[in-house]
Structure formats: structure tokens, C-alpha cells
């Protein structure tokens, strides 16, 4: 699937975004906090309109990687390019910052913290349009309706404050807001982890539709292998800041090569699950890795 992107209201800074132009390339990304190497030489490529999963447990560096991509954390070394444009260095001015923000948008895990409690949904989405596009008020209003409709929200939700919405509805707002910038890449950092399964499936369904229709690429950061299996084509497994395995999701999850990937897979609860054996495997792996204890 390539990103034959149909844009309706892109008016600024969009120099005919063709498919090649939207490839995300991350090369040898590093970040240390104090003496701890949180991200240690991570590389991957996300094809235009593709879907790449980044999986691992807490402390594996997946969130730090996501935050470096959007510029919330600056990398120590390595490069992040979208369509060949470097974005690892700090921005010099507002125009550059806006251009970068338009390339990549992020949806966070907790929809209770990621929306301003004082701003109604309509304005929350409109703000992004005002920042990035030169639209008249009528055009903006129409676009907000369109965006909210795309995520399954109507007039009633548009006038509501976040506190009046459920977790699933808030996450829809966060997705609409991210899509408002018409990004080439959407970073979803555990974006469905806080939702109940019946609602989680709704959001996964919605995301699959958005990718199909808008051709936006997904970088899906998650600890949940079953979710990753259904929403990504490729996957990168991180452990201790390093990539331990990468490849097409189906291959990695059916025939894992690395013992850590296998441990992650075995750890997913199911009927006939043997937690005692998993615990033993885990300790063996930790001994192998030279007693890096974790917990």
C-alpha cells in the first residue's frame, strides 16, 4: 500500500507530497539520560503509508524513541529523516517547527491527560487548522466537522468539554486533532492501551480505516503483541534500548528468532498458559544477558 494521499485543504508548505517524499528513516538513534543509555543505536524505516510496530516492555526505549521522532526529546546522535529532510537537530524558527509538526503527529496513551480540560472538542481541533493552514472561518468549521466525522464524533461531542467524554471518545478526539495537521506519519504511543477491549477494538477498526483512506503511515508503539499483530505490517522489538529483532510482523510473531521475542510471545496469557515455565525462561535470559536485572 502506497500513500496516494488525497488532501482536501492542504494549502501551505505542501510541495506536492508524492509517495517517495514521505519515507521515515531513522538511523542509529541514541539517547542517554545520565549514564543510562535509554536508546542505543536504533534504526528502522517506515515506508509511506506503511505501518510499523515498535514493541517492548517498560524501559526498552520505545517511548523515548517516539518522543525523539516528534521533537519532544533531542537525540544525542543519529538521524531522523522524513522524505530525506533531516529533523534531529533543533528547529531554528517557527516556520521550521510548524513544517516538522505537520510531517509527524502523535497520539498519547492517556486520553485523560492529553486534552486541555478547558477547551471544547471543536476548538481543540480547530486550533491545529489555524496553526497550519490558511483557511477562512467557514472552511475551518467545515473541516472540523469533516475530521470529527472521520473519527465517528458528531455535533454533540463537538461542543463538549473533555470531561463529558468517555476514554474512547477522548482518544477519537486526539486522533482527529492529530489528523488535522494532515501528517505523513502518525505516531501512536500505546494509544489503545488504556481502553477497554470492546472500545479498543473500535479504535483499532477506526485506525485501520484511516490508514486505508488517508494513506497516513503509522508508527505504532505498544507493549501488546496481539494488538501489534493486527495493526502493523512490520515490527521492531526493542530491549534495553537496542533492536533485538526486526522484520515483517507475521514472520516475527510466528517464527521469532530472538529468545526475548519468544519470551514476550509466551508471556501473553491464553488457555494452557504456563507462567512457571515463562518465569524460568525469563531468568535464564537474564543470566545470559549478564545479570541485567530489570525486575
Amino acid at each position: 500500500m502506497t500513500g496516494s494521499v488525497t488532501r482536501t485543504s492542504g494549502t501551505t508548505g505542501d510541495k506536492g507530497a508524492d509517495a517517495v517524499d514521505a519515507t521515515l528513516e531513522v538511523v542509529d538513534l541514541c539517547k542517554a539520560f545520565g549514564g543510562h543509555r535509554a536508546v542505543d543505536g536504533v534504526s528502522f524505516t517506515l515506508a509511506p503509508g506503511g505501518s510499523l510496530g515498535i514493541v517492548g516492555e517498560s524501559g526498552c526505549g520505545k517511548t523515548t524513541t517516539a518522543r525523539m521522532l516528534v521533537g519532544l526529546v533531542s537525540p544525542d546522535s543519529g538521524s531522523i529523516r522524513v522524505g530525506g529532510r533531516e529533523r534531529s537537530a533543533p528547529t531554528r524558527n517557527r516556520a521550521e517547527r510548524l513544517a516538522r509538526a505537520r510531517e509527524m503527529q502523535m497520539v498519547f496513551q492517556d486520553p485523560y491527560l492529553s486534552l486541555d480540560p478547558r477547551v471544547v472538542v471543536r476548538e481543540c481541533v480547530e486550533e491545529v487548522l489555524r496553526l497550519h493552514f490558511d483557511l477562512t472561518r467557514e472552511q475551518r468549521t467545515a473541516r472540523v466537522v469533516e475530521l470529527l466525522d472521520q473519527v465517528g464524533l458528531g455535533e454533540r461531542e463537538a461542543s463538549a468539554l473533555p470531561k463529558a467524554l468517555s476514554g474512547g471518545q477522548r482518544q477519537r478526539v486526539a486522533i482527529a486533532r492529530a489528523l488535522a495537521a494532515e501528517p505523513k506519519v502518525l505516531i501512536l504511543d500505546e494509544a489503545v492501551a488504556a481502553l477497554d477491549v470492546s472500545i479498543q477494538a473500535q479504535i483499532l477498526d477506526l485506525l485501520a480505516g484511516i490508514r486505508r483512506d488517508a494513506g497516513v503511515g503509522f508508527l505504532f508503539v505498544s507493549h501488546d503483541l496481539a494488538v501489534v499483530r493486527h495493526i502493523t505490517e512490520d515490527v521492531v522489538v526493542l530491549r534495553g534500548g537496542r533492536v533485538v529483532e526486526a522484520g515483517p510482523t507475521v514472520d516475527v510473531l510466528t517464527e521469532p528468532r530472538h529468545t526475548y521475542t519468544r519470551l514476550l510471545l509466551d508471556s501473553v496469557p491464553r488457555v494452557g498458559w504456563d507462567p512457571a515455565r515463562i518465569a524460568a525462561d525469563r531468568r535464564a535470559l537474564e543470566r545470559e544477558a549478564g545479570g541485567s536485572s530489570g525486575d
Binding site: 483499532l204 499483530r229 510466528t254
Partner: peptide, 21 residues
């Protein structure tokens, strides 16, 4: 609606609507 790991599992099927508040 629970996503499954088995290779032949279909995509998770959402329950429409939301729980009763």
C-alpha cells in the same frame, strides 16, 4: 473483540456502542 496472536485469527471485532454509564 480481544486481539489474538494465533496466525489464523481474524481482526478483533468491536462491540458497537459503549458500556452503560
Amino acid at each position: 473483540s480481544t486481539p489474538r496472536l494465533d496466525p489464523d485469527a481474524g481482526p478483533p471485532k468491536p462491540i458497537p456502542g459503549r458500556p452503560v454509564s
